[in-house]
């Protein structure tokens, strides 16, 4: 295995830029992978954009190529209930200050759990084909469904 090229490449992770990394078979016992540059004692109080991730942290990788369908978010209908945030398995719902901001398409795998747990009518998250344009999807958003009596 040459340095910097990974067996995980074909699973959709990006190719590593850092040439100084060693292959897995060269790793010695007790090695530590640091998630952050420098002092990481207050990470719990830092939002993702304030943190200093190293290349070892999977935040810097992407699994976007796993998706065949993607969730599209409609801000106009959302009530910020945060159901999607708590049940997202991939930490891909961006919520800041009790507000839902959008979807992290680098880490979303397109499972569709967020759409299923969305309580609004019509849903403020819907699944579309990966190739479809987000603006087009928003333009054709379904209308409110009447409850069958």
């Amino acid at each position: 295995m040459s340095k910097g090229v990974l067996a995980t490449d074909k699973r959709g992770m990006r190719e590593l830029g850092a040439e100084d990394k060693v292959g897995w078979d060269e790793v010695t016992k007790g090695v530590v992978l640091d998630s952050f540059e420098g002092d990481a004692s207050d990470v719990v109080h830092q939002k993702a954009e304030e943190r200093h991730y190293t290349d070892f942290n999977s935040y810097t990788a992407t699994v976007a190529s796993w998706r065949i369908i993607k969730p599209v978010y409609n801000r106009d209908i959302c009530i910020d209930c945060q159901n999607c945030w708590v049940w997202c398995p991939d930490t891909s719902i961006i919520s800041r200050d009790k507000q839902m901001l959008g979807i992290d398409y680098d880490h979303c795998k397109g499972c569709g759990v967020c759409v299923e747990v969305c309580p609004t009518n019509p849903k403020s998250l819907l699944m579309f084909a990966e190739a479809e344009d987000n603006d087009e999807a928003l333009a054709g958003w379904p209308q409110k469904e009447k409850k069958a009596k």
């Binding site: 993702a48 999977s58 945060q82 708590v86 919520s95």
Partner: peptide, 15 residues
């Protein structure tokens, strides 16, 4: 949930 969602995640995506 709104208050709970102000926490900063410590399990990153792309696992």
């Amino acid at each position: 949930l709104k208050e709970f969602s102000t926490n900063n995640d410590r399990l990153e995506g792309a696992h």
